[in-house]
Design a protein around this nucleic acid. Structure first.
Lengths: 227, 227
DNA sequence: TTGAAACTGCGAACGCCGTTTGCAGTTTAG
DNA sequence: CTAAACTGCAAACGGCGTTCGCAGTTTCAA
């Protein structure tokens, strides 16, 4: 009942919960070990392969043993996410024109999603905003410091940028799904569109153009009461 | 083995598979019944409550019996999604300036997501593009017909619009999650931002402004090789 | 020094899930 | 009239996240 990891009171978030007490034998594993193994599994076989049993097996133990280190699978997912986001950290601080710097952030975010596609299956969770995620958010705010517009607008812009990046990442991941195989007769405009030659160039600058116009719109200088 | 719903060959998509054969007794239920019950459950208690057993119980039968009508839970999810998207159908055909009409589409999409929040948990699936979804897509293409820009751009614009709508829906759904409860000392810009007064107005026109700038950017008239 | 308390790993179990299977009964086709 | 194709149903299978109890180990306090 007074167990540090399974305490009875409304459980603290994983970020502030201590790893272990001082009494018993030294633990065989650690949170970091578990997270590393889980991420390796997710990178290799997708998030569906990250079951407690699979992670435990990869570590040479049993599923139940993991609960000495985590209190739930959701905790593990939060830790995995924050660890992955941590990969966005160690860059040269990205200065210059704020919009350009933000576009760099977006590009590195997109690359992260391509390196760890399982992030797309996990990102829509609202629970955990870990230290690395907060650091990334803070860095975005630092970039936007010279802009004189409401803080709320900056928050919105960052959130929207992140969202659009996930959209691009998802579209890239689901590129090769093919079309309906249904009878297209009932959809004249769709049929007409598909009858055209299949597109010249994939418009490689779509990512940049979209984000630039989006951010420019959201971060306009002083919009308080003007229609 | 020659069962119509569990046939051995690579299974057809649910949209083209017949409901039943001609031999046996009249079925007690129907696909539509099941989908209706499942949607009611999802509206009331979220997608997590839509288990085969729960849906079957709501219909007064056993879980296994549902497999006389569907071949998997994914099929059910596809059917639910398409049924919900069908609610976007019966409107007056939304004419006028293409961008305005598209914004109307987006607004109705957003309302749909608020009526059926479980769509957010199901939308990122790539499998099923049902007849209603295709009809909606076709309607968007019809709206965009007067625009002279590559079809690929129209596809991108529709996809991006849908994506941005889901972003807004998600943010609205996850509005009241509160902030970190972590030590903010390590995040100076975030702390400074949060120290400011909490925002005057929530910028109600954010949805419209964002989408309008996005669509205008993606649907520019003739961008093939100009930087 | 001693004994309680707090920890450790572990294996078995619980309840839920999606899905499969076998069976008895019903309707239709030939 | 028989055989095939369907029906509903209950039981079972394997996998999941999670809990629990047990035996062993380490630390702290008396």
């Amino acid at each position: 009942m007074t167990d540090a990891t399974t305490g009875s009171a409304a459980r603290q978030p994983i970020w502030t919960r201590p790893h272990r007490g001082t009494r018993g034998p030294a633990p065989t594993h650690s949170r970091d070990d578990i997270v590393t193994a889980a991420i390796a599994l997710a990178d290799a076989e997708g998030l569906g392969a990250v079951s407690m049993r699979a992670v435990a097996t990869a570590l040479g133990t049993g599923a139940g043993s993991l609960y000495r280190y985590l209190s739930s699978r959701d905790d593990l997912l939060d830790l995995m996410t924050d660890r992955a986001v941590g990969e966005l950290r160690s860059h040269p601080p990205a200065d210059g024109e704020p919009l350009d710097a933000m576009l760099g952030q977006a590009r590195r975010q997109l690359a992260l999603y391509q390196r760890h596609p399982w992030l797309l299956d996990v990102a829509h969770r609202t629970s955990g905003m870990g230290p690395e995620t907060l650091a990334w958010f803070d860095d975005c705010l630092r970039i936007l410091t010279p802009l004189r517009c409401p803080v709320a607008a900056k928050f919105e812009a960052i959130a929207m940028m992140t969202g659009v990046v996930t959209l691009f990442a998802r579209n890239a991941a689901a590129a090769a799904t093919g079309l309906p195989a249904l009878d297209l007769a009932a959809y004249p405009h769709l049929a007409a569109a598909l009858a055209q030659p299949p597109a010249r160039a994939p418009r490689a600058d779509l990512f940049e153009r979209t984000l630039r116009s989006l951010l420019a719109g959201l971060l306009a200088a002083d919009p308080p009461t003007a229609t």
